[in-house]
Design a protein around this nucleic acid. Structure first.
Length: 429
RNA sequence: GGUGGGGUUCCCGAGUGGUCAAAGGGAACAGACUGUAAAUCUGUCGGCGACGCCUUCGGAGGUUCAAAUCCUCCCCCCACCA
C-alpha cells in the first residue's frame, strides 16, 4: 500500500507540509497517530468539514490511528484565524451538545471501535487549566513579536474590529493541545485547514522547545468551487451532514449539481474511488459527465448517510429527473446500482401531508407553494407562478390563484415543482 | 474621559425634507438556450388575494401638511488623543 502522504497528495488534500521528507518517513511506520480539531460551533458539521474528515478516513484506511479532537475547550475561546470578525461565544451547554452531534457524524466516516480511532474533547484538559502555571510553563515559550506576525492574526490586526485578547490566546491553547496529545497519545502529526498553519506550527515549536522532538503538520488547501465560493456555503445555507437539516435527497442533489469543472476534483476528495478511474473524467462530455456527477452524488451520499439512503435519494432523483443508466468503463468501482431505473420512487423527495378536508375545499396555488416552502412568501409564490416557474404534476400553473384540490391528485399524491429543480410531494391525510 | 467619523432593505453601497419600498453592483429567484453544467440574454427581487393598503433606513421621542433625510436623548462601531 502506498504511503498515506502520497495518497493524500495525489487526491488533492495537501497544501503544505512541514519537514516533507521526515514526515514521509514517519508515515512509513506501521501505526502512527494523527489528529485534527473540529470546532463545536454548530450541532452538525457541514460539507466544509469533509476534507478533514476524509483525510482522517484515509489515514485510518492506511492502518493508522486518527484522533478527532472536538474543541470543547478552545470553542470557549474562539479561533480568530481567517475570520474577519469575532465569533459569538457559546455557552458550555451548547458546546457540549454540539460535540455530541459531531461525534455521531464522524462515526459515519471513521471507525471508532476497538480504539482504531479516538475521539477526544480538549475541554477535558483545558477547562481546568490554571492561569499562572499555564503562563509560566507554556506562555513563556511564545514570542508576542512572532505571534503578531502570524497570518492567522494578521487579518484581524489589520481590520477595524481588531483582535480581542481572549482570541489572541487561541494559538497557545491549540499548541498546548498538540503538546498534550504528543505526550498522552504519542501523536506527532496534526492536520488542518490552510488557515490553521500558524496554530499547527505553534504546536510543533512548542513540542520542540519542551521536548526537543520533532512533530509534523499538514495543511489542506481551501476547497473552493470553480465559481470561487467556499465549499459548503451556498446561498440557501450550509449543506449539513445531519440528515434532519439537509436530507439525503438534498445532499444528493447538491452533489449532482456540481459544476463540470469540479467533478474530477470532488471525486478525488470526497469519494474513495480509485484515482485511475477518476483521472479519466476529464475527457468526458455531456451525458457521460452527467453520469459521473450521479456517481459522485451517490458515493458521497453513501458515505454520509449509508447505502440505503443513497439509493433512495438516487431513485427519487431518477423519478423526477430521469434515470441514469450505468455506463460501462466509467468509475466502474462504484457500487452505483444497476437497477436504479427499475424501482423509481419519489419517497425521498421532500414532502408534506395536508388534511384532506382542507384539500376538499381547495387551496389557491400560491398559498400552497408558500405553505410547503417552495416560495418564501405569498408574493414570491405569485411571482414564481406569473413568471411561469410553477408546475403541478408537471403542468405549468397558469394562474396564481388556481385552486388545487383533491381532484388534482393522482394516486393520492401530487408533485409540485418550482423552477427546474425543486420538487415537493404532497399527500392527503 | 475628549475630539472627529459612522450605523440604510441578504451583502456592499448611494441617498442630507416631498418625485423613496429607497440609485448602482453583487448574491438570489424565474424564463429562454442546455446536460439537473457553465456562459449569455430577459424579467423579478419588503409584506399583503395586491393598479391599492401596510411595515422598513441603530433605538426612543420631537418639529413638519410631509422625515432615511432636521432636532433631543440613548445604544453600538471606528479613528485619533488621554
Amino acid at each position: 500500500m502506498p504511503n498515506v502522504l502520497e495518497t493524500l497528495k495525489e487526491r488533492g488534500f495537501v497544501e503544505n507540509t512541514t519537514h516533507d521528507q521526515e514526515l514521509q518517513d514517519y508515515l512509513n511506520k506501521d501505526v502512527v497517530t494523527c489528529y485534527i480539531g473540529f470546532d463545536p460551533t454548530a450541532s452538525s458539521l457541514h460539507i466544509g468539514s469533509l476534507v478533514p474528515i476524509m483525510s482522517l478516513a484515509h489515514i485510518q484506511r492506511h492502518g493508522h490511528r486518527p484522533i478527532a479532537l472536538v474543541g470543547g475547550g478552545t470553542g470557549m475561546v474562539g479561533d480568530p484565524s481567517g475570520k474577519t470578525e469575532a465569533r459569538q461565544l457559546l455557552t458550555p451547554e451548547i458546546i457540549e451538545a454540539n460535540a455530541n452531534g459531531i461525534k455521531k457524524q464522524l462515526s459515519q466516516f471513521i471507525q471508532f471501535k476497538d480504539d482504531r480511532a479516538i475521539l477526544l474533547n480538549n475541554a477535558d484538559w483545558l477547562n481546568d487549566l490554571r492561569y499562572i502555571p499555564f503562563l509560566r510553563d507554556i506562555g513563556r515559550h511564545f514570542s508576542v513579536n512572532r505571534m503578531i506576525k502570524a497570518e492567522s492574526y494578521k487579518m484581524r490586526l489589520d481590520s477595524e474590529e481588531g483582535l480581542n485578547f481572549i482570541e489572541f490566546n487561541y494559538m497557545l491553547l491549540q499548541a498546548y493541545d498538540f503538546l498534550n496529545l504528543f505526550d498522552t497519545q504519542d501523536c506527532h502529526l496534526q492536520m488542518g485547514g490552510s488557515d490553521q498553519w500558524g496554530n499547527i506550527v505553534a504546536g510543533i515549536e512548542l513540542i520542540r522547545r519542551v521536548h526537543h522532538k520533532t512533530a509534523f503538520g499538514i495543511t489542506f488547501p481551501l476547497i473552493t468551487t470553480s465559481s470561487g465560493e467556499k465549499m459548503g456555503k451556498t446561498a440557501k445555507g450550509a449543506i449539513w451532514l445531519d440528515p434532519t437539516r439537509t436530507t439525503p435527497y438534498e445532499y444528493y442533489q447538491f452533489w449532482v449539481n456540481t459544476d463540470d469543472k469540479d467533478v474530477e476534483k470532488f471525486l478525488a476528495l470526497f469519494t474513495f474511488l480509485p484515482m485511475e478511474e477518476i483521472r479519466k473524467i476529464g475527457e468526458l462530455q455531456a451525458a457521460e459527465l452527467n453520469y459521473a456527477k450521479s456517481v459522485l452524488a451517490y458515493e458521497t451520499t453513501r458515505l454520509a448517510h449509508g447505502d440505503k439512503q443513497a439509493t433512495e435519494a438516487l431513485r427519487a432523483a431518477a423519478s423526477v429527473f430521469g434515470a441514469k443508466k450505468r455506463i460501462q468503463g466509467i468509475l466502474s468501482s462504484s457500487t452505483f446500482p444497476d437497477d436504479a431505473s427499475s424501482e423509481l420512487s419519489v419517497d425521498a423527495v421532500p414532502s408534506t401531508m395536508i388534511e384532506s378536508n382542507k384539500l376538499n375545499e381547495g387551496i389557491p396555488a400560491f398559498k400552497l407553494f408558500t405553505q410547503v416552502g417552495l416560495a418564501k412568501s405569498g408574493g414570491a409564490a405569485r411571482r414564481l407562478i406569473e413568471q411561469g416557474g410553477a408546475y403541478l404534476n408537471d403542468v405549468r400553473v397558469e394562474q396564481f390563484d388556481k385552486i388545487i384540490s383533491l381532484d388534482d391528485f393522482i394516486s393520492s399524491e401530487i408533485i409540485l415543482r418550482a423552477g427546474k429543480k425543486r420538487y415537493h410531494k404532497i399527500s392527503a391525510k
